[in-house]
Amino acid sequence: MILPPAMLGMLGGGQLGRYFVIAAHELGYKVTVLDPDANSPAGRIADVHLCSAYDDAAALASMAETCAAITTEFENVPAATLDFLAQTRTVRPSASAVAIAQHRVLEKQFVRDAGLPVAPFAVINTAQDLPADDSGLYPAILKVARFGYDGKGQARVADAAAAAAAFEQFGMQTCVLENMLSLDAEVSVVLARDADGHIVTFPVVENSHLNGILDVSIAPARISDVLKAKAQALATQLAQKLAYEGVLAVEFFISEGKLLVNEMAPRPHNSGHYTIDACVTNQFEQQVRALTGLPLGDARQHSAAVMVNILGDIWQDGEPAWSKATAHTALKLHLYGKHEARPGRKMGHFTTLAADRDSAHNQALIARSELGIG
């Protein structure tokens, strides 16, 4: 067990890293952030900001010397960085788990081989791997194997010709071609697993997306208790198969009443932001606890909640109308402190709280409209 006031390390300086720093500080820890952006939201509030690349030898040596344990806020940290730090320090999650989550082919194959349900897919290494029109995979989504997020590196394709064009557009890098199913809903489960294998799951969240980016998350999800329990069980099974240590998010499709694993994230997740205001322990405190060996916190939800993402698009006519959002007394506004607003960039979020889900949802939709979101 690593106790305060030890120094913890965070690879990545975005909003997820920022909330980790906040949670760690509240528990009495200090934090070093490694991020190449001098204006990174996490770096600006950390005790130490190493403004260097993720493979910078001097920065990694400094982190290895000063940090008792190290984690990450995003999955595209070089595996060699995690391996180097793990030689002398506690690193959670492991490089092997992150390597699977950062590569869609490895991820899909791991989930399938673990016995969990996934949508039909094909691995595309060359144009010759693209299935014919009669394969049963079309319509489909072509996704690059690495560095795709928030709808980037993805293309909807109706047939083999469209798939070939998209594959060429993606530079003929390895892709996954996944059958595009008719969806009843999309949900996610955020959980934490400690080094002893204990797992705590947060309530299942229902998600909707706009232009490939998460728009609204409703907690608890508007699905049956049977499906909620099944989703938590499948996420738990996946964490156990990975021998995972840390916070893990698992996204699911629900198609024709059946759950299918879509993808996983080896870190806290956008759809888990509601836990900051609506749960006894939020996902970032849970990340600190799993990293340091503290007992995992109570994940119980005490208020119905709806989270809405705030993207840079609403700054196009100047500063948004925050007075309208803050007029809602049960709305919690979170701005990430990013120095530049750009279309599609996550600049913040808000969460509405209520005694029941419908009331929270109605308030969220009103505030979303007042801010000009969507």
Rank of each mutant, 00 (worst) to 15 (best):
S303R: 15
D225K: 11
T352F: 13
H349A: 09
A235P: 07
R222N: 12
P295L: 15
L238I: 10
Q316D: 11
Q301H: 11
D313L: 07
A290E: 08
N262M: 07
K228I: 00
L260F: 15
D225M: 02
A367L: 15
Y336P: 00
Q316A: 15
P266R: 05
Q237D: 15
A355E: 05
D298Q: 09
P320F: 00
L291C: 05
S224D: 07
A305G: 07
A299R: 01
M347W: 11
H361C: 08
A305Q: 03
A290L: 06
G344P: 01
Q363T: 08
H334E: 12
R345N: 08
V306H: 04
L248Q: 04
P295N: 09
S359T: 15
K230T: 15
S255P: 09
R345T: 09
L260A: 10
M347Q: 06
H273M: 05
A233T: 11
E256C: 13
G246D: 13
L248C: 04
G312N: 07
T351R: 10
T329Y: 08
A231C: 10
T275V: 04
F284V: 02
D313W: 02
D313F: 06
D356G: 06
I223M: 11
L294G: 01
K228M: 09
H339C: 00
V306F: 12
F252N: 10
L238Y: 09
H349W: 11
V288E: 04
G318D: 11
G257K: 10
L365H: 10
P295C: 13
I254W: 06
V261E: 05
T326P: 02
H302M: 06
Y336W: 07
A278M: 06
S359D: 08
F350T: 01
M264N: 03
G257T: 05
A235L: 10
L335T: 05
N270S: 04
D277P: 01
M347L: 12
A278Q: 00
D225A: 14
D313Q: 12
W322H: 10
I254S: 05
L331Q: 01
A299L: 10
G318Q: 08
A325I: 14
Q316C: 13
V247R: 06
